[in-house]
Nucleic acid binder design. Structure first.
Length: 276
DNA sequence: CCGACAACCTGACGGC
DNA sequence: TGCCGTCAGGTTGTCG
């Protein structure tokens, strides 16, 4: 599930369980996910009190009163379970709070990560150093995209997945936003006029906000033992809908580039021809 | 600098 | 029922 809206939803779901809580037990259950879990994680977090939860790009940040910040990434299959009834083989980190709540970080594919940074040094966390602006923040603008795309012949779609250009977009929401902005995913990024980039910025914001809102509405389900996430997949206009009808009636197409599926509508997102 | 591609790892699903 | 191939929301490194 995890693109920006899912991480945002996760952080919001964790907040009431963790914020202001002293951590009575913090137990990694294996030494590594995508990379090693810091060996001193248990020692530095046990007994600390959580002060703040936040999100940067697709990372969640859990800050404590001891000056440390736990940074988690959910990879492809990660998710936090609240008060799980049992512990499975994919629960790689357990956290108990003074209020008697328990969190389990499950991640079957283990593409996620856990890191611990001094809060004052979070800006130097390597994955954060080159990160682009937050798509929901004030610095994600048509001017920013114009600068980032200038002279680039590469298709716009993979550039939107580049976290250095904009931080937090993944395959689903890039497909959705390009459809909403009526831009051909294969269009050379540098050829998109400024006005169209403004539409794209707006589309990205609209799609992400709608997804967060839908995620928020399923937050109640979050703590449910079965934990099944219906989420907002029903709202997708093109993603995962190959062969179905687009809202315009034309079929949704799928193409693979760079190993990632691209879903789009050739009628709503027509290729630009050089000559009219 | 750029783009294509593999690798990391497990589970779900469709076809036979 | 079961085996096999294919695919999956991300990131990172290599190769040409």
């Amino acid at each position: 599930m995890p693109e920006l809206p899912e991480v945002e939803t996760t952080v919001r779901g964790l907040r009431p369980v963790l914020e202001g809580q002293r951590l009575t037990a913090v137990e990694p259950r294996r030494p590594d996910l995508r990379r090693p879990i810091p060996p001193d994680l248990r020692r530095r977090l046990t007994g600390a009190t959580v002060t703040t939860l936040s999100r940067r790009a697709k990372y969640g940040l859990i800050e404590t009163d001891r000056g440390d910040t736990l940074i988690f990434h959910l990879g492809m299959s990660g998710r936090w379970r609240i008060d799980p009834e049992d512990i499975g083989k994919h629960d790689h980190l357990l956290i108990d709070t003074a209020a008697g709540r328990r969190l389990a970080l499950a991640d079957p594919r283990r593409f996620g990560s856990l890191d611990l940074m001094a809060t004052a040094a979070v800006g130097a966390f390597p994955p954060f150093v080159a990160l682009g602006p937050e798509p929901l923040g004030p610095h994600f603008t048509a001017a920013h995209l114009a600068r980032a795309f200038e002279g680039r012949a590469a298709p716009v779609k993979p550039l939107l997945l580049d976290q250095r250009i904009v931080a937090g977009l993944g395959n689903i929401y890039v497909c959705e936003a390009l459809h909403m902005a009526r831009i051909d995913p294969a269009r050379p990024a540098g050829t998109i006029p400024r006005a169209r980039l403004a539409k794209l910025v707006e589309a990205v914001r609209t799609v992400l906000e709608a997804a967060i809102a839908a995620g928020g509405s399923t937050l109640r389900d979050y703590a449910r033992p079965d934990g099944e996430l219906g989420y907002f997949s029903k709202q997708f206009l093109v993603y995962g809908r190959e062969g179905e009808a687009c809202a315009c009636g034309a079929p949704v197409l799928r193409r693979v580039d760079g190993g990632r599926s691209t879903f789009y509508c050739a009628r709503c997102q027509p290729p630009k021809r050089r000559v009219a």
